[in-house]
Amino acid sequence: MDQKIKAQEAVVFTDLDDGSAVLLHLDNKFYYSLNESGSFMWQLIEKNDGAMSKEKLVEALCEQFDVSPDQAQSDVSEFIEDLTREGLISVKSDS
């Protein structure tokens, strides 16, 4: 069973000039800082509009950054967990 990740509508993304980014959740008005890889993953999630899977994120991260598959797997899992907890993304099972 595949899981699909979707950016929440109420979240605004701002790209900063050094590759990092900031998210603003319009419901609670909290800011969230993203480092370069976080910004990269967020943009992929947003661009794919609900069609991005964890596996594709891991693959893309390995292609873009000098990171091992195991490390990428761990980073993506943590990223998804953090963003889900903060209500920035939703993860749905694609049965």
């Binding site: 605004v12 993304f13 701002t14 900063l16 900031v22 603003l24 800011y31």
Partner: peptide, 8 residues
């Protein structure tokens, strides 16, 4: 988005 950038 602009305000978030300014704040950051």
């Amino acid at each position: 988005a602009a305000i978030a950038g300014c704040h950051a």
